[in-house]
Computed example of a mutant assay.
Amino acid sequence: MRSDLSRTFWWDVYLVVITAAVAVVILASDGPSRTARLVATGAIAGILVLHFVAGRRAIEREEPRPVLLAAELALFGLAVTLVPNANWLLFGVNPLIFQMVPLRTAVIAVLATNAVLPISDAFLRPDAVAGDLVVALISSAAGIWLGTWIVRVVRQSQERHRLIEELESSRAEVARLSREAGVTAERARLAGEIHDTLAQGFTSIITLLQAPEPDVALAVRTARENLAEARSLVAALSPAELTAGSLTSAVRRQVSRFTEESGVAAALRITGDERPLPTAVEVVLLRAAQEALTNVRRHAHAREAAVLLAYTGESVRLVVRDDGCGFVPGEADGYGLAGMRERAKQVRGSVTVRSDPDTGTTVEVEVPA
């Protein structure tokens, strides 16, 4: 919009300068009478008045105004008929034509406007017809070329403006979709957090209290841990176990808790040089250990389980094995394994599940770190 206003402003300045210069030329002419010169000057002043009263607004709004243009050209024809030197106003009139009517109409109007002087010469100044006709032909060709170029530039400017608007619209749509995708991803992440912490904790409490010999003390401890997880989710969405220690100690507590709750022997082995990891990576590995051990307790009917946490130079690998009944990977995948895969994907990790009735199940999570 600002560029359009600037273009209109400079065109107004150009038209005023041309009109003023031609008015000076008309008033200084020797041949025509004083009355003819004054009428011609008034005619070109009328062109300027019509432009600022209505023509300028039509150009800004890109509204074709053939009637208004016809009135301006009639004034031009009057001025040229009375004072031939008014023909210099073609420098302003030709571009004006192309701004006010469509291209085909503008070409016809330019030819007609340039023909005014030769035609008036044929009646009033026969000896000047030949010379003014040559000038009219040159002026027509130059005017049509210049006007066509102006129209092409304006169309290109309009096309760029349209493309910019489409780009801004597309950018806004991408931003909106990105926000929606972010919200969806965050909801999925929170769902995974709740499933891997609170839901599993409540399941453990119910299991402990419904046992033939309820372990109330362990159930109370589990409830307290669940409460800590809930507070952690609300406060920072980071596992409470990780805020209280390292990943290794958090996984070790999970293994010990698994053995206490299920009665299944389990051992943790650490290989490689333990090192601090990004919080997101630690959360993925800890939740994977929780989910895998929960699945062993619920479904495997295993006699023993083993957990490996292996640090290498480029990655960290968590492996949970059991000697239970196994399942068919892909057919029995529940929300837990799907959430595990989604978590791993968020940190460019991978999840591999191998299961067989004879050898049990192995869940392996590897994360670059």
Rank of each mutant, 00 (worst) to 15 (best):
P278H: 01
V251P: 03
H301T: 07
E304P: 01
A267C: 10
V281K: 00
S315V: 07
S315R: 14
E282N: 07
L308N: 05
E331S: 13
D273M: 10
A265L: 11
R298L: 14
A236N: 13
S246W: 01
R253H: 12
A240H: 11
G334I: 04
L318H: 03
T248N: 09
T294M: 10
A265I: 08
V251W: 01
A266V: 11
E282S: 15
A280G: 04
A244W: 03
H301M: 06
E225D: 14
V255R: 09
L233D: 09
A228F: 03
V328D: 12
I270G: 09
G326Q: 07
R253V: 07
A300L: 02
L308D: 14
E282A: 15
G336Y: 01
L308C: 04
E282G: 15
Y311P: 01
V251L: 08
R257W: 12
S246K: 06
V307C: 05
T294P: 00
V328S: 13
S256Q: 12
R321Y: 03
D322I: 06
V281M: 01
L293H: 05
A280V: 00
A306F: 01
L247C: 02
P329Q: 07
R298E: 15
V328M: 08
V283C: 05
T279K: 03
S249L: 07
G272F: 04
P329H: 04
E229D: 15
R287D: 11
P329F: 02
T271I: 05
A230Q: 13
G245F: 05
G336I: 00
E282M: 06
R275Q: 09
L268C: 10
D333Y: 07
S256V: 12
A305Q: 02
A244K: 11
V255W: 07
A267I: 10
T248D: 11
N226T: 15
E304M: 08
E260R: 13
G326S: 09
T259L: 09
T259S: 15
E241L: 14
V283K: 07
R297W: 02
S232C: 10
P276S: 12
R275E: 04
V319N: 03
V296E: 04
I270T: 11
D273T: 14
G263N: 13
